[in-house]
């Protein structure tokens, strides 16, 4: 929800969460103690995809394409990349971002670069 201060937050440790609130209160990033322990990159990537695209978890397979399989449009993919940057504290340059088309692409990039 934009405005009116009703933001639901999810994901990341407390520090990252604080950063996320300051950086972008338009995001849905959820926080619970178990989630903050979550370290597996693939699981965290999938979680972000589920939340941002509003899709069933079962559809978010590693080979799923954001646009062709998960109903994202070009603006969604830009936002997804921003969410990955936030969650994993990595910078994803535009030319690299253009090549992140599937869940696996995202996991691979993050694993190599974080």
């Amino acid at each position: 929800m934009l405005g009116n201060g009703t933001f639901r937050l999810s994901g990341g440790n407390a520090e990252a969460l604080g950063k996320a609130i300051r950086a972008r209160d338009t995001y849905s990033i959820a926080e619970t103690s178990e989630e903050s322990q979550m370290s597996d990159v693939a699981e965290r990537v999938k979680k972000i995809v589920v939340e941002h695209l509003g899709v069933e978890e079962s559809k978010v397979t590693e080979n799923a394409s954001f646009i062709d399989d998960l109903g994202a449009d070009s603006l969604d993919t830009v936002e997804l990349v921003m969410a990955f940057e936030e969650e994993f504290s990595v910078e994803i340059p535009d030319d690299a971002a253009e090549k992140i088309l599937t869940v696996k692409d995202a996991i691979d990039f993050i694993t190599k670069n974080s």
């Binding site: 929800m1 934009l2 405005g3 009116n4 639901r8 338009t26 995001y27 849905s28 941002h52 695209l53 509003g54 603006l75 936002e79």
Partner: peptide, 11 residues
Amino acid sequence: CPAKDRRRMDD
């Protein structure tokens, strides 16, 4: 509309 779509619109 779903919360996901409300990110695209101010109130």
